[in-house]
């Protein structure tokens, strides 16, 4: 018998504790799954599941063996993964640490689909460090936040996304559907590290000042604990997070602008970089709600007689 495959069935049944559900997950019918578990039990000489009650339960022996079985299955998977990687090129990619996890996952999956022979090695790096890493060749391609200026870099298509504000869910400002930057006056702001995102820092803070929001303090970090605690607000894309509320910003004053970036001289992997850029554009549009950069609307200042009297 193929012991590893049988152990994989065992771990899935142990997770589901339901033969029907486990069979669906494994993409097979239930009778052969039951049969294989029975064969595994014969092979090991112990009963793994207690099927006497109405529900399926792990026996003591089953519980004892489950951890070991998982370890074996994971190691075999890793073995196959390493074998695959040994064959192809590796593309080292930098992504911002605060990019949505779902977007990173979609990026990796999307790229694997069109370039299965190239292994993607993503690393979480802020924009400024990506610029250095690109220059040093530590990464081949980055996903950077604009504005960024660095000699010798080329950029992919710029995508934009209007940012909203994240507030603690009991914040009184959540009563309105849309928050104006001026409404945030007197609050503290949480932003990504200034050293890592200098361009973003300068641009966001200048927009805030222009619209009547001068944060009493600017905190730096990627975690949202301060927002959850009600001690600060943060800007970001629409998100549903426990304990937090997201509101759009009136007039869309804060825009996130990202693109891929690579060194002009990276000719050797240029074709792969192009593929990655295309996947990045598609994924960020489909999965992260970004859009092509349009014309920047002219800022309009409403005129009220009281401003001049």
């Amino acid at each position: 018998m193929d012991l590893v495959r049988h152990l994989r069935y065992f771990t899935v049944v142990a997770e589901e504790l339901h033969f029907g559900n486990a069979a669906i997950r494994l993409g097979m019918a239930q009778p052969p799954l039951s049969q294989r578990i029975k064969r595994l039990e014969e092979e090991l000489g112990v009963r793994l599941f207690d099927r006497s009650a109405r529900q399926v339960r792990l026996t003591d022996a089953g519980r004892l063996l489950l951890g070991e079985a998982r370890e074996i299955v994971a190691r075999v998977d890793r073995l196959h993964e390493l074998a695959r990687q040994g064959q192809g090129t590796v593309l080292k990619v930098g992504v911002p640490p605060d990019l949505a996890p779902a977007a990173i996952a979609a990026l990796v999956a999307g790229f694997r689909e069109i370039k299965p022979e190239v292994r993607l090695a993503p690393a979480e790096i802020w924009t400024a460090d990506q610029v250095t890493a690109l220059a040093e060749g530590t990464i081949d391609v980055g996903l950077v936040r604009h504005p960024v200026s660095a000699p010798g870099l080329e950029y992919g298509r710029i995508l934009v996304q209007a940012q909203g504000v994240l507030l603690a869910e009991d914040d009184p400002l959540t009563a309105v559907g849309e928050v104006h930057l001026a409404d945030l006056a007197g609050r503290e702001l949480l932003m990504p590290p200034k050293e890592g995102e200098p361009g973003l820092h300068a641009q966001v803070l200048s927009e805030c000042r222009r619209h009547g929001f001068v944060p009493t303090q600017v905190h730096q970090g990627a975690g949202l604990g301060l927002v959850l605690a009600g001690a600060a607000v943060a800007f970001g894309p629409k998100a549903e997070l426990p304990g937090l509320a997201w509101r759009p910003l009136l007039g869309s004053p804060i825009m996130s602008r990202v693109s891929t970036a690579w060194r002009v001289a990276t000719a050797s992997v240029n074709e792969v970089i192009g593929d990655f850029s295309a996947v990045a554009v598609r994924t960020l549009k489909e999965r992260a709600g970004m859009t092509d950069e349009g014309a920047v609307p002219a800022r309009r200042i409403s005129r009220r007689p009281g401003m001049l009297a």
């Binding site: 619209h211 009136l250 007039g251 200042i301 409403s302 009281g306």
Partner: peptide, 11 residues
């Protein structure tokens, strides 16, 4: 106008 104290909103 007091409900819209914003430079970019006209009342």
């Amino acid at each position: 106008a007091s409900g819209f104290p914003y430079d970019d909103v006209a009342v």
